[in-house]
Design a protein around this nucleic acid. Structure first.
Lengths: 219, 219, 219, 219
DNA sequence: TATGAATGAGCTTTCATTCAT
DNA sequence: GATGAATGAAAGCTCATTCAT
C-alpha cells in the first residue's frame, strides 16, 4: 500500500508542496486508510510524518481540510481521463463493440485504483459522514460520469449490442460488477492468489452476456 | 429508517433488555449509522437515550462492546435463515432452477436489509476498522454462506444451468450484482423513484444471462 | 481579598453548588482578578481549585460561561437592594435631605464593594471586552439604577436641594465622585493609611456643595 | 477612533519608524484596544498590518515589548506638557483663579485624550496586569503630576479659593470628576448626543462649588 | 439498577517565538 | 530588513470510563 502512494506529487499537481507538507499527506493517507478519519489523531499524523503538530495546522486550517486536500484531487483525477479520452474514442468508433470499451475501462480504472488504493479507500469510507464529500462526489461522478455513460449505453443499444432496458439499470449493473471485482480483488482479499487475467475476462463476459439478453449467439 | 429499527427485540432475542437498555441501543444505532462509531460520543448516546452516562457502562463495559452488541446479532440473523431454510429447499428440489433460488434470495435478503438498514450500514462501515468484526464476518459469511453457496453453484452447474467457471467467480459476481442493487436502492439513492419489481426482475435476468454464458436460447 | 470572597454561597444563592464547584468559582475569581480573564488558563484554575480540568467544563460549558457565572450575580446583587429598599425610603420621606440618601448609598455600596472586591474588579476589567457583559450592565445599571436615580434627583430638585441642571449630569457627577473614591480607596491604594470616616464625610460634602450651586448658605 | 490614531509619528518621535513598523503599531493599537492585550494574537496583528509574523519580532523582541512601545510614550506625553507649561503659567499668575486653571486643564487633557483614545484605553485596561506599567505610571503620574498638583492646590488654598481640606482629597475629587466626565463622554457613551460646552461648564462648576465649601457667595 | 459528578488522558487548535533563506 | 515555514508548549475542550451514592 505504501509503495503505491508515492504518486502524491502527481496527484496534487499544481501546488508546490514543501517537503514537510508531502510527509504530512503521506502519513495522513496511511493513517486515515487504516483507522478511519475520526479515529486518527493529528498528533499521530505529526509523529508519523516527523513534523511538529503545529506544522499540520499551518498548511491545513483544520483536520477536515487535510482530509479534503487528500480526497478531492483523487475524485477529479478519477473522472477526468475516463470522460475525455475514452469516451471520445468510443463515439469516434474507436471501440466498435461495447466489450472493447468495457475492457479498456476496467483495465484503466484498475490501474488508477491500484495506484491510489489508500486514497480511494479513504474516499469510500468517509463519504457517508461528510456532506462536503457527498457534494464533490455528486458533482464529479454522478453528473459527469453517469451522464456520459448513459449516452454511451444508448449508442450501443442503438447498435443492438445491449438489451433494451433502461440505461440507468445498465449503469448500475455494470458498475456493481466492475467495482465488486475491484473491491474483492484489492480491498477484501488482496492477499489471495488471483489469476487477474482470467478473472478480468470472466467479469467482462459476465457483463456482456448479462446485458446482451437471451437472444444472441455471439456478441 | 427509524420505523424499521424497532425490530430490536427480535434481533436481540434471548437477552431480556430493560427499557433503558433498549433506548440505549436504539440511540446508538442511530448515531453510529449517521456519524460513524468513532465520531459518536457516549455522552451523545446517553443524552439521546435519556439515560445517565453511567448507565451505558453498566450494561456495556466499553463503547466497543456496545458496537458489538449491536452488530453481532445482525450478522447471525443475516446468515441463519439463508443457510438453514433456503438451502435445504434447494437441495430438496424446492427450487428447480437457479433463477428461482436467486429470486427468493434477493427478496428475502432485501426484506432483511430494509428491516435492518441502519445496523447493516454500521456493520459495513465499521468492518474495515475492527478486527473483531472482521473475524465475526469471516466466521459467519465467509465460512458459512460462502461454503454453502459454492455447493449450490456446483449443483446447478451439474444441471447445466450455470456456465462452467470457478464457483467463487460465480459467488463474487452474483453477490456484487445483488448487493450493488440493494446498496444503490437503499443506501445511495433511497429517495429516488424506484420501480422495485421491474428492477428486481432486470437484476435477476442480468445475473442469469451473465452466468448462463453464450450458448443458451432460454433459461 | 481572599477573606472577602467567602460570600460565594450568598452570591450564588438558589443554585446548590457542589463542593468542587465552589472551589472552582473561588479559584477562578482569584485568578481572573489578578491576571485578567484572557491571561488565566483553565488548567491554572483547576490546579488552584484542586480539581481535574474536566470538572470545570462539566459545570461550565465554556470558560466564558464561568466568567458569566461569576459576574452576573454580582451585577444583580449590586442593583437589587439599591433600588428596592433605599429608593422607597427616599420617596416615603425616610431621607428628607439628599445628603442623607447620599450617605446611606455610599456606605451601603461601600460594604458591597468591600465584600465583593475581586468580583467587581473582574466585572470592571472585563466589561470592555465582552458584549454579553455590556448587555447585562445596560439592563441592570443603565436601565434600572439610572432610571430610578433620575426620579430621585428630580424629587430633590423640586425641593430646592439640588441645582437646576440636567439630572443626567447630576447622575454622572455623583457617581464619578463616589466611585472615584471607592476605586482609589480599595483598588488603587488599598494599602495606604485611610481615615475612612473623614474621607467619606469630605466626599459627601464635595458632592453636596457641588450640586447645591452658588446660592446657598447651609444645606 | 481610527482617524485619531494617526498621530503615531508624533507620539513615537525620536525613533525613525519604518513603514512596516508604523503599520504594526497601528494594527496593534487597534487590536489591543478592542480585545485586550492577552486576547490579541501576534499573528492577528501581522495580518492586519500586512506584514509577516516574523517582522513583528524583528522590531519588538516580545509581544510585551510591543505593548510597552505603544503605551510608554503616551504616558510621557500625557504628563509632559501638563507639568512644564501649564504649571508654570499658574505659578506665574497666568491663572489667577483655580477655575481658570481647571478649565485649561480639562480642555487640554480632553484634546489629548481624543487624539489618543485607543492608546489611553489600552493603558487604563492593561495597567492592573503589568507591574512594569504600574511602575511607569507611578513614576510619571503619581510622582510628577500628583506632586505638582498638590503644590498648586496649596497655592489656591492660601488664596482662599479652595476649602481647607487635605490637598490629596482635592486631587482625588478633582480627577475623579474630570476623568469621570471624559470616560463617560468618550468611552462609555461616545455615540450619545453630547452638548460638550455645557457639560464642560457644569463639570467645572461642580468642582468649583464642591471645593469652595459652604461659605462663599460667588467665586 | 441507575445516577451523574469526577477524572485525567487525549483531542484539535492556537500561540509566541525562532531561524534559514 | 523582511519573510514565512517550522516549532513545541500550552490553550480550551471532549472523551470514555469509574465510583460513591
Amino acid at each position: 500500500m505504501t509503495d503505491h502512494d508515492l504518486e502524491i506529487d502527481e496527484l496534487m499537481d499544481g501546488d508546490e508542496l514543501t517537503d514537510k507538507q508531502k510527509k504530512i499527506i503521506v502519513s495522513a493517507i496511511e493513517s486515515f486508510a487504516e483507522k478511519g478519519f475520526s479515529a486518527t489523531s493529528t498528533s499521530e499524523i505529526a509523529k508519523k510524518a516527523g513534523v511538529a503538530e503545529g506544522t499540520i495546522f499551518r498548511h491545513y486550517k483544520t483536520k477536515k481540510d487535510l482530509l479534503l486536500a487528500i480526497v478531492a484531487p483523487v475524485m477529479a483525477k478519477f473522472v477526468a481521463p475516463f470522460i475525455i479520452k475514452d469516451l471520445q474514442k468510443v463515439l469516434h468508433q474507436d471501440y466498435e463493440h461495447f466489450e472493447d470499451f468495457l475492457t479498456a475501462m476496467l483495465l484503466n480504472r484498475r490501474d488508477f485504483l491500484v495506484k491510489n488504493l489508500s486514497t480511494v479507500k479513504i474516499l469510500v469510507q468517509e463519504i457517508p459522514f461528510h456532506p462536503e464529500l457527498k457534494e464533490l462526489f455528486k458533482e464529479h461522478i454522478a453528473l459527469k460520469v453517469y451522464a456520459q455513460f448513459i449516452k454511451l449505453v444508448e449508442h450501443y443499444q442503438a447498435k443492438g449490442q445491449i438489451m433494451d432496458i433502461p440505461a440507468y439499470s445498465v449503469f448500475r449493473m455494470t458498475f456493481s460488477t466492475i467495482f465488486g471485482y475491484l473491491i474483492a480483488r484489492y480491498m477484501i482479499l488482496p492477499e489471495a492468489d488471483w489469476d487477474d487475467e482470467a478473472e478480468t475476462e470472466r467479469t467482462i463476459q459476465f457483463i456482456m452476456h448479462g446485458l446482451a439478453g437471451p437472444n444472441h449467439s455471439k456478441k
